[in-house]
């Protein structure tokens, strides 16, 4: 049973990180206003939302299974307050920070209509901090974190998100950028 919890904790953590990476990329794509061929814009927004929720589910499974695991023995404090853990406190603390940020992102995402765009957006910007922190936690804390295959995948994910951010900062990022620049010429 213990082994199962441990294995499940690792797999769910990996799945959560993979989904978060996809979600960040979809978030950037939906911000651009450009639909990928064959998929309407609102679908991208819905997929972004649903993948994020799925990533959160896996994150809860990741944290929950490691709380039940007799080897990891995560405490409630470890889950909420960073850098107090018994094993690799710094790397585990990064995981706690990312988890807290995900909670904030999820709550503000679900309550967007209530809290208003300004608060939502201020919190949502933290996605860009949450993703590298979560990745660093995986590398520093994960049993396979420094395995070659994982590092290759992490580098690939980093390159994809980096390219996404670079695209977002480019002047042609918005779908309507050209028409609008023309109007203000």
């Amino acid at each position: 049973m213990d082994n199962a919890m441990w294995a499940f904790g690792r797999v769910s953590g990996f799945a959560s990180l993979a989904l978060i990476t996809v979600s960040v990329l979809l978030g950037i794509l939906t911000r651009s206003g450009r639909p990928p061929p064959g998929i309407p814009r609102f679908s991208i927004t819905l997929i972004h939302r649903n993948i994020s929720l799925l990533a959160t589910v896996f994150l809860f499974l990741h944290v929950g299974s490691l709380m039940l695991d007799s080897y990891a023995k995560l405490t409630v404090t470890d889950v909420v307050v960073p850098f107090l853990g018994a094993f690799k406190p710094f790397w585990q603390g990064l995981g706690t920070v990312a988890f807290d940020l995900v909670l904030a992102l999820m709550v503000t995402g679900l309550l967007r209509q209530r809290i208003g765009q300004r608060t939502f957006r201020a919190v949502h910007w933290f996605s860009y901090a949450m993703w590298p922190i979560a990745l660093a936690h995986a590398i520093g804390n994960g049993t396979n974190g420094t395995s070659k295959w994982f590092l290759v995948m992490a580098a690939g994910a980093g390159a994809a998100v980096g390219a996404g951010v670079a695209w977002r900062l480019s002047t042609n990022f918005l779908e309507t950028a050209k028409a609008r620049a023309g109007a203000l010429r």
């Binding site: 109007a183 203000l184 010429r185």
Partner: peptide
């Protein structure tokens, strides 16, 4: 914001 400058041009 975009329409008036376009018309003015």
């Amino acid at each position: 914001m975009f329409g008036l400058p376009a018309m003015a041009r």
